[in-house]
Design a binder for these strands. Structure first.
Length: 655
DNA sequence: GAAGAGAGCGCC
DNA sequence: AAAGGGCGCTCTCTTC
């Protein structure tokens, strides 16, 4: 392998090379310089002075921190720390300087407990080099707490490892064990393994045969500096480097900024919901009791109850009985308890949201959900404590705008179908998406022969209002196609016989011959290759011992769709993060295909237009043929809401 | 008593 | 025989 001059010394070969995925010679014993402790203002001045003189190639960085408030333990056992009260205690930097023959490390620890004004560090962070951290998310929170602006280029060791092994951290539920204790053991070791797998210590062990390891800031800093070049190399060898640079590394910043911004939640509304739902639930529970159903949450009790009424067979679902929403709504007429039960279940589940708990409000008066980055197998975001992405639409108005600001939302219309068409390159699906209301366009073609003359060529809007049922069937077919539904599943969904559903699916697929073929071959190639990937290059790996199953076939078709949509969405978010600075606007939630933002009221229109434009552009740069559309909602900017309806909480409570 | 499995609610 | 992709969270019931 040919490396640039000097790099070979940097990675002087070791004698006992460990066999691994990497072929690069590696050596843990770097040119190791001293660590200098900075305790005074003058010391910091000298440090900056040195940094600006050195020919720097990259900087390792680590920040030790504490929290100004104690954590709260949520009902689900999760310990939540308040990131708005984060207090950096020790900032460590390893300046890596290069010359023609070697790279040298110069490590400094800035003691933040000493009374040092840190603003002059900005000159260092403005250097156009990569800053390498393990878990840059925490680092960013620390930098922002110090009122510093983050460096432009960040490389995160942890995020890279997560990307490199995406898809492998799922426990295989299908594997069978002879004894329960075996299963328990396998599971425990899996959890342990996953926990430790991404730790810095374990990561170092994957790259070096020997690995000095310590929690000490300067040791960590030196380690990540060394790891950087090897890890970049590994990412390039795996084919995911571009994706990391284009999507994930900037997203670390966009994402952390949403965490730091948090959302402002109206305490008044929370109290109203808590008391309102409590009263309603008590009332409905009492009503259900008069019918003889004591615990509406108990599956067993419901089974016994409806059996005693002779109605149980209406709830049959396979070999068991189901009392979920759809099943209940199909049976409202049978007995008065059924609608009551549906209302009860809906309110009971929603009313317990942790977002209502006063304890999770941060020191700055806002709620800061954890935005998990690359914790899903597709590259999508997940949030927790509270799960702001899962906040039911009716509750959204609890999220309010601060004084002088408004909340807006822009979402990409039917984006997953558009991405499906583009990823699998199906001309007819692209045409149908571009026509406007996709499902109407599909229905107009699919049902052409049985349509009345006036609807055969009418506008899609007119079609939508008059042929809603046919449109609905197309919608179910389309989404089902993306998720790999079977005739059995579609039949259940549409309440038609299975053979009808099968005919429907066959005919539907004949409209998209290219897509049909691609969906057939994608899992086959994926299995041989060992992974499927997004259009940007993020890979979901298949675990080596996995059986080929329907589930796997389905995710191999779906991941490139869901993952590509997520990646392009993140790219849009990264641009917005920068562009919003001109407007004093902020992203507060990234909802898979929609951004929710706060902006000064007089700038709300401009920010909404900008958001829409950037989201459309991010996708069209990749897929120029798609006629991407967005929906903009800024009609009730005092709160977050669905379709401009800010009164839905009252409506819901007074049903 | 703790932990896990399953069912069920919510979101895209 | 199972039967729709990706998530978080709460509740019941069972098992250790």
């Amino acid at each position: 392998m040919n490396l640039l001059p000097g790099t070979e010394q940097y990675f002087a070969p070791t004698k006992n090379k460990k066999v691994s995925a990497l072929v690069l010679p590696k050596n843990p014993s770097f040119t190791s310089g001293d660590t200098t402790l900075i305790n005074t203002q003058q010391g910091l001045c000298d440090f900056i002075d040195l940094a600006l003189q050195l020919p720097i190639c990259h900087v390792g960085i680590e920040c030790k921190h504490i929290y100004g408030t104690t954590h709260v333990t949520l009902p689900n056992g999760y310990d939540k720390y308040d990131i708005s009260a984060i207090q950096p205690t020790e900032l460590c930097l390893t300046l890596c300087s290069w010359d023609i023959t070697s790279i040298k490390q110069h490590t400094f620890i800035v003691n933040l407990a000493a009374d040092i004004e840190t603003s002059q560090l900005q000159a260092l962070f403005d250097l156009p080099v990569a800053f390498v951290a393990y878990d840059a998310n925490k680092l960013l929170h620390c930098l922002w707490a110090l009122d510093l602006i983050e460096p432009h280029r960040i490389w995160d060791i942890l995020i890279t490892e997560k990307a490199r092994y995406l898809g492998l951290h799922q426990f295989d539920k299908r594997q069978s064990f002879d004894h329960f204790s075996d299963k328990k053991e396998a599971k425990a070791s899996f959890v342990m393994e996953r926990e430790h797998f991404y730790s810095l210590k374990a990561t170092l062990a994957r790259y070096y045969s020997e690995h000095p390891s310590s929690e000490q800031a300067d040791i960590v800093c030196k380690e990540v500096s060394k790891l950087y070049m090897l890890q970049v190399h590994a990412a390039i060898m795996q084919g995911i480097h571009s994706h990391l640079l284009e999507v994930e590394m900037p997203w670390i910043v966009t994402n952390a900024a949403m965490e730091r911004n948090g959302v402002l939640v109206s305490r008044k509304q929370c109290v109203k919901i808590l008391t309102g739902t409590k009263a309603k639930l008590a009332q409905w529970q009492a009503e259900l009791e008069t019918y003889g159903l004591m615990n509406p949450n108990s599956h067993d009790e419901k089974t016994v109850f409806f059996n005693s009424l002779g109605l149980l067979h209406h709830f049959k679902d396979g070999t068991d009985y189901s009392f979920q929403r759809e099943m209940l709504s199909a049976n409202y007429d049978l007995h008065p308890t059924i609608k009551l039960l549906a209302k009860y279940s809906n309110m009971a589940s929603i009313s317990k949201d942790v977002i209502f708990q006063p304890g999770i409000v941060g020191a700055d008066g806002r709620i800061h959900p954890k935005h998990k980055h690359l914790d899903t197998v597709t590259g999508r975001q997940a949030t927790m404590a509270p799960n702001i992405l899962g906040l039911p639409a009716t509750l959204r108005p609890i999220v309010i705008a601060p004084k002088g600001y408004g909340i807006g939302e822009v979402d990409l219309a039917q984006i997953e179908v558009a991405i499906t068409a583009a990823v699998y390159n199906d001309t007819n699906l692209i045409t149908k998406y571009n026509a406007g209301d996709l499902y109407s366009a599909l229905a107009q073609e699919f049902y052409y022969s049985e349509l009345p003359e006036e609807h055969k060529h009418c506008s899609l809007d007119i079609f939508k209002t008059h042929q809603g049922d046919k449109r609905h069937v197309m919608k179910q077919c389309t989404l089902g196609l993306i998720y790999g539904i079977t005739a059995f599943g579609l039949a259940k969904k549409l309440k038609v016989p299975e053979f009808k559903a099968e005919q429907l699916m066959d005919k539907f697929l004949t409209m998209f011959p290219t897509l049909k073929k691609a969906m057939h071959t994608a899992p086959q190639y994926g299995t041989i290759r060992g992974y499927v990937s997004t259009a940007t290059g993020l890979q979901r790996l298949r675990s080596e011992n996995a059986e080929r199953s329907r589930k796997e076939k389905n995710w191999m078709v779906n991941m490139p769709i869901q993952g590509t949509a997520a990646a392009l969405f993140k790219m849009a978010g990264n641009r917005l993060y920068q562009l919003y600075k001109r407007y004093d606007a902020k992203l507060i939630v990234a909802l898979h295909d929609a951004f929710i933002f706060e902006a000064p009221l007089d700038k709300l229109d401009d920010v909404a237009a900008l958001t829409s434009q950037v989201m459309i552009q991010a996708i069209q740069e990749k897929y120029p043929l798609l006629n991407i559309r967005t929906d903009i909602n800024i009609t009730s900017p005092n709160s977050w809401n669905k379709d401009g309806n800010a009164n839905c909480i009252d409506e819901w409570l007074n049903r």
